[in-house]
Computed example of a mutant assay.
Amino acid sequence: MVKPDAVMKAITGTWLYLNVTSYFDNGTISHNPDPGLGQFPVGILTYNTAGWMSANFMSSKPEDRPGDIDTEAPDVGTDAEWALIGKHTLAYAGPWYVSETTDKVEVGQITHGPTKVAWLPTWVGIELQKNYTLLEDKTMMRFRSKTQDGKNGDMFFRRLA
């Protein structure tokens, strides 16, 4: 059996979010975009060798991201505009680990958490489990999981570093 260290070494790095396909148990594709992140979100996952990770996603729609708001000038923009940015962002960080349920590095289960920080208070302290598959000589990664609304979801990432 492969030790988790070998799996962690294979996953460690930075991954660019490519897309997600959501589908029902009968295989029918769901065409409903994520209510917060929209149809074409952008995101990055980062994993380090010490066992810490961060996930950062946001909507790519300009109307979800008022362009004139800056942390250097917090009095710029309305509370509604700041709330709009928060509504269309997803971010969390904490430890990560993999299970010893397989003898292959390329396939298994990864857990993010318990999260230490999160954009939503209800996500602090939770664990997010996903089945992963490393593809194309470990340069692509697929997460397979159930979405919050009960659909199946396949998320794809490409290794950046």
Rank of each mutant, 00 (worst) to 15 (best):
L84H: 12
E106C: 00
W82A: 00
L45N: 13
Y92L: 03
G150V: 05
K151Y: 14
P41C: 02
S30Q: 12
G125E: 03
E136H: 11
Y47I: 00
L84N: 13
D68G: 03
R158Y: 15
W123G: 00
R142N: 09
P95H: 12
D34V: 00
M155A: 09
D154Q: 09
M1C: 04
E136V: 03
T46M: 02
G36N: 07
T122H: 12
G125D: 02
L45F: 15
E100S: 07
T101P: 06
G38E: 08
M141P: 03
G77F: 02
A10W: 15
W15E: 00
T122L: 05
V2S: 06
W52Y: 15
W52T: 01
L18V: 09
V7L: 03
D68W: 15
E72C: 07
F24V: 03
L45T: 07
H31M: 11
S145A: 06
V105Y: 12
F40V: 02
P4S: 09
A6F: 15
W82C: 00
P121W: 15
T21F: 12
Y47G: 00
P74Y: 13
I44Q: 12
G125T: 01
Q109N: 09
G94R: 12
G86L: 09
S30V: 07
G94A: 04
M141N: 04
